[in-house]
Nucleic acid binder design. Structure first.
Length: 598
RNA sequence: GGACCAGUAGCAUAAUGGAUAGUGCACCUGAUUACGGAUCAGGAGGUUGGGGGUUCGAGUCCCUCCUGGUCCGCCA
């Protein structure tokens, strides 16, 4: 069925043809939702058409409004306010619309087309030398939600993770563990593996600073001291051994990385995220070299006297970028060129989304430019989903100063808070302990996830632990609460053997709140598409909040079960039941699960 | 030094170039012997960082300045 907005657009084109004898392209007709404080549902903006009509805005609006009203049966009336032509749809139009979507589940989602190339979403991408923190949480939640969002708009998605499991930072942890670990393991210490390894990374930095200070007191400059501290030299030596495949170093590296992975798995599981494929930099860090050599041969790259290889990006207003060191080895950029190429060969992706913080804006700009230089047209299909940092009320997180919000600790803190609120309200009294825990966990994660995802990704966001655990207002638990209340009503209906109709009568007298609710629902499919286009779960989050607010208004205003008119009661039950499913489906995109009671 | 991003009530945030800039928290006032009050209704709070420009119309686009952040490594 063509949407009413589209039919208004088409009718407007015809009207202009008939009334003014002019051709008017469809896309110049602007139809949008009417502001909610004015009467009407759809607004046709008249201003751009004045050139064609050669009349004033009000007269033009009247002309078009009269024509379109006569043409479209679903229009009840129109009104011209200044240069805006506002149409009101008939109530039966909305009820009919509801009837059409009642059985759609999930409503508004587009089924994935078979045989189309996937969208790759790379996210998480942790280093294996320390546990995940709040910044990673934003990354993980965004990556997962965007993936689900794209799936809901009909795109097949592959979620991939690129683990940075090699390099000097891992060697630092390894070295410190070797020296001071005394053979400790996660099992012996009872610590999560990623935490244990992270502690030795911190230990390294601490001891290293001692050495630097010591050297400085012997008269070296700060820079020299930082370069010549024995521990750093040892770590570098360890990295060289690792690259040479030294069996002892490799064994240590494998063992400690494994501890970290086990720890990460726990955190990933708490966050409810997963990947279709995991890449490891230890296996990809040499990639891309051949691409660069090919580029060199083709003359799009160049070699300096010391035989290092560079891309000249000055024609794009950027710098020169190193791609191969003078000893012929790859750098980070080279590796990313290689993995992008490999993934394109492997998946033939239609798009590749990189969920990476905005401090790497330059990197991804350069990545695309170089791929383009190398002759790969699909460079344009790469998209850097750049998100802002998460700051704390007292400023930025700083790993070195220990000013980080640990992911596991934060999650536990959120759960503890949910426990407290549930306990204070006494709503879970009499529930089994296991069930309580599950509910509190869902509430806690809803609070955390929603708090982070409702903010536009590009923004630097402030994470205030005190506010994030708020369960009122524009929060995840508020949305869950609305869902739970609906479910409670539906259970009650079932107990009373009141059935929920599959279709509702067009004759029911609906009220303002009900119409408002249906109109919001009507706008969802387009909103979902827009959220997908913008890679923005925030749009979805804010829609869902609007939706539950509208439902709460309806719920407060009208009785459902106790409504005496059975047709009206049926209508309200169908609407409520539909909204419950709709909320659940929408929240699931953001990785948020609904409790049945709370 | 160069480049990129952001700046919206006390705080946190929303707004395909469209109407009187929405919303939450906090603050004030009301509503219930409840289909679950973790709710709803109402109030107060704004020169959208400053200035200029484009447009019928600018928080949104352009220029400029201010503030904050990030990047510009033979690190990843």
């Amino acid at each position: 069925m063509t949407s009413l907005e589209d039919r208004i657009r088409n009718a407007a084109v015809e009207a202009i043809k008939d009334l003014y004898s002019q051709e008017c392209p469809l896309n110049t007709i602007q139809v949008q939702k009417t502001r909610k404080d004015l009467s009407g549902d759809f607004t046709l903006v008249v201003f751009p058409l004045l050139r064609i009509s050669r009349k004033n805005p009000v007269q033009t609006g009247e002309d078009l409004g009269g024509y379109i009203l006569a043409k479209l049966q679903d229009i009840e009336k129109f009104e011209v306010v200044k240069g805006f032509l506002n149409f009101t749809a008939k109530e039966t139009y909305w009820i009919q619309f509801l009837n059409n979507v009642l059985d759609q589940s999930p409503y508004g989602f587009v089924k994935p087309e078979k045989g189309t190339a996937p969208v790759l979403v790379e996210y998480s991408s942790p280093n294996t030398n320390k546990p995940l923190h709040l910044g990673h949480i934003r990354n993980n939640l965004l990556g997962y939600a965007v993936s689900k969002l794209l799936m809901a708009t009909g795109k097949p998605v592959k979620m991939v993770n690129l683990v940075n499991d090699r390099g000097i930072h891992i060697c630092k942890s390894m070295l410190a563990w070797q020296r001071w670990g005394d053979g400790i393991t996660p099992e012996k210490s009872g610590m999560k593996g990623d935490r244990l390894v992270g502690d030795y990374y911190v230990r390294f930095e601490k001891e290293y600073q001692h050495e630097v200070t010591e050297l400085q007191s012997q008269g070296l400059s700060k820079e020299e001291a930082a370069k010549k501290a024995p521990m750093l030299l040892d770590a570098q030596e360890m990295l060289r051994k690792w690259e040479a495949g030294d069996s002892e170093v490799t064994a240590l590296w494998e063992m400690m990385n494994q501890w970290v992975y086990t720890g990460f798995d726990t955190t990933y599981k708490s966050l409810g995220i997963a990947f279709d494929k995991v890449y490891y930099e230890s296996q990809t860090y040499k990639m891309g070299k051949q691409l660069v050599l090919d580029g060199l041969e083709a003359g799009v790259l160049y070699k300096k006297d010391d035989s290092s290889v560079w891309a000249d990006l000055t024609d794009s207003g950027l710098d020169e970028k190193l791609l191969l060191r003078s000893d012929g080895t790859s750098v980070y950029m080279t590796q990313d060129l290689g993995t992008a190429h490999q993934r394109h060969e492997e998946f033939g992706f239609q798009n590749h989304v990189y969920v990476v913080g905005n401090e790497q804006n330059y990197h991804f700009k350069v990545l695309a430019l170089i791929l383009k230089k190398l002759g790969f047209d699909w460079a344009e299909q790469l998209h850097h989903l750049s998100y802002g940092m998460v700051e704390l009320p007292d400023g930025k997180m700083k790993s070195r100063e220990g000013k980080v919000v640990d992911a596991d600790e934060l999650i536990e803190e959120m759960v503890e808070n949910a426990r407290q609120v549930s306990k204070d309200l006494g709503k879970l009294d009499g529930f089994e302990e296991k069930e309580k825990e599950e509910i509190n966990y869902r509430i806690a994660m809803a609070a955390l996830k929603y708090f982070i995802l409702k903010v536009d990704p590009v923004r630097t966001m402030l994470f205030n632990p005190k506010e994030s655990i708020d369960f009122n207002g524009n929060t995840g638990p508020f949305i869950q609460y609305t869902y739970v209340r609906i479910k409670s009503v539906l259970r009650k209906a079932e107990d009373l053997n009141i059935s929920i109709p599959q279709t509702v009568s067009l004759d029911v007298q609906v009220n303002e709140q009900e119409i408002q609710l249906i109109k919001l629902v009507y706008s969802f499919p387009e909103l979902l598409q827009e959220a997908g286009r913008q890679y923005s779960p925030a749009l979805l989050a804010n829609y869902l909040y609007e939706l539950v607010k509208a439902f709460n208004q309806f719920y407060q205003h009208s009785t459902i079960i106790n409504e005496e008119n059975s047709e009206l009661r049926g209508f309200r039950l169908s609407l409520a039941s539909f909204v419950a499913r709709h909320i659940q489906d929408g929240m699931r995109i953001m990785g948020i699960e609904m409790p049945e009671r709370m």
